[in-house]
């Protein structure tokens, strides 16, 4: 199965708070970031924690601006946080709508 995302893609993390184990940190939910690397394919931790079979899928390094995660810092300086996330946790950021009447 082809990966849904690739380095360079802008993505938004999901906001859902699942009832069981997950490895999408709370501070990084519902935030936009950029994929900066891919770390192979691994079974989803959420499913393994429930004893389910889990097919390996892409895990990406997503870079966030600290100001997007936590708001502007007191000293006004920004930093980056790179979080490693299964593709299941990610959604594409809304792409620009296709022009109407596009003759295809």
């Amino acid at each position: 199965m082809a990966d849904r995302f690739a380095p360079g893609d802008r993505v938004r993390t999901r906001t859902a708070d699942p009832p069981g184990h997950t490895r999408l940190p709370r501070y990084a939910r519902g935030v936009c970031g950029e994929i900066v690397g891919t770390c192979g394919r691994h079974p989803l931790a959420d499913e393994l924690a429930q004893g389910l079979d889990s097919a390996p899928r892409a895990v990406h390094q997503v870079r966030f601006r600290a100001s997007d995660l936590f708001g502007p810092g007191e000293d006004g300086r920004d930093h980056a946080v790179v979080v490693e996330l299964w593709e299941d946790y990610l959604e594409p950021t809304s792409p620009d709508p296709a022009p109407e009447g596009d003759p295809t």
């Binding site: 999408l24 940190p25 501070y27 995660l69 980056a80 946080v81 790179v82 490693e84």
Partner: peptide
Amino acid sequence: VRDPRGVLREFGLELPDAVHITVWDASAE
């Protein structure tokens, strides 16, 4: 993750203002 500069200062590491910080969260594999 929230205040790396402050935490590093508590460790005795004072970084120049111009140095950008990247925090790596080993949240997966």
